Simulated assay, not measured.
Amino acid sequence: MAADQESQAVDDGKEKDHESQRKANDVTVRSFPWVRAGVIVAAIGVTITLLIGTITACQSQSQEQPGIEGNSGNVVVGDSNIINVQEVVQRASSAAGDDDAKFKQELKTAPGADQAPTGEGPWLFTVVDSGTDGLLARDSNVAAGSPVGHSANRGMIWVDCVATTTFTPTMVTGENNVGPKWAQIRWRHRALPTDRGISDPKVTQIAWMYLGGLAPVGHNGQVKSCGS
């Protein structure tokens, strides 16, 4: 009888654990519906928030910061012009302040900005129009894909190619809506959507970002199609 009671207590404990896990998962889904959908949910004007919802209440668990460290350097662009991508992004950001429209305009004045990208890639882009939330990286370019971290606004992203799929995030508006086009990027996968990562051209692992949330640096953005 004592053994039966002990066994019942263990089963009751497991059931309580399972119920607690279920409730915690429900809270997560209610708090971050974009996790379930795999896309971003807020859009203000033409600002896409293919992004991360409000992650200020859920601090990034990564100490790795996107941007210039570890993924910058001199890049050869059209007509053999050599630019330092760190300087280009910093100069544009400094001139634009918090205005992303001006930031994108400043990028268009950089050397090579009106020319097709050269070489074999990857080619540099930067995250735009994502405010304080950032842009999600995903493990695929279809609706069923899952987030594998995010980059901060104006983080530097290295792109191998662009794919056209059947999936356009529903909340993308204005000039950021480029249809179902996704950039294949160099990206170390992170465990959670709220984990902030970086794109490193030396990394072989890939992920996907929505093309409408990226702006080219030092070229006109016309990179090759994936599979070509």
Rank of each mutant, 00 (worst) to 15 (best):
R22K: 13
I198V: 14
D200K: 09
G78Q: 06
Q21Y: 15
V85M: 04
K14N: 15
N81H: 14
A116K: 12
I48K: 07
G213D: 02
N153I: 05
I40R: 06
V77L: 03
G53W: 01
V172L: 09
G134I: 02
T165G: 09
V75C: 02
D200L: 07
V89M: 02
G145L: 08
V203A: 10
G174Q: 09
P169K: 03
Q184D: 04
D4K: 14
L211C: 03
V148D: 03
P216R: 04
H189F: 07
L192K: 13
R196L: 10
E106C: 08
V88Q: 01
G45C: 09
I157A: 03
L135P: 00
I157C: 05
T165Y: 08
N141G: 07
T164M: 10
D195T: 05
D139S: 14
A101R: 06
A96Q: 04
T165A: 11
L135E: 03
G212D: 00
G145Y: 08
K224A: 08
G155H: 03
D129W: 04
S228R: 12
V75F: 05
A116R: 09
F103T: 00
K14G: 08
S62F: 07
G78Y: 00
Q59E: 12
L51K: 08
D200P: 04
N153A: 11
D17E: 14
T126L: 10
S228Y: 08
P33C: 09
V85C: 04
S151E: 10
N25G: 12
W208M: 06
I206R: 13
V162M: 09
T132E: 12
K102F: 01
V128W: 00
V88K: 00
Q59P: 09
G212K: 01
G155E: 04
C161S: 08
F32D: 05
E120S: 12
E106D: 12
I55N: 10
V162C: 06
G174C: 10
F103W: 02
N176P: 07
G13N: 12
E15G: 11
D11L: 13
K102P: 00
G67R: 03
G221C: 01
A113D: 06
I157F: 06
D114S: 15
R22C: 07
L192P: 01
P122F: 03
I82L: 13
Q65E: 13
V29F: 13
G179K: 10
L136W: 07
V148W: 01
T166Q: 15
A207L: 05
G155C: 05
A144K: 14
A9S: 14
G53P: 03
G45L: 12
S146I: 14
R190V: 08
Q65N: 14
V39N: 07
D79F: 09
G213C: 05
Q222P: 05
L50D: 10
K23G: 05
H189C: 07
A92H: 01
G221V: 00
G149N: 06
I40C: 09
D100C: 02
Q63T: 15
K23E: 14
E175D: 15
A2I: 13
T173P: 02
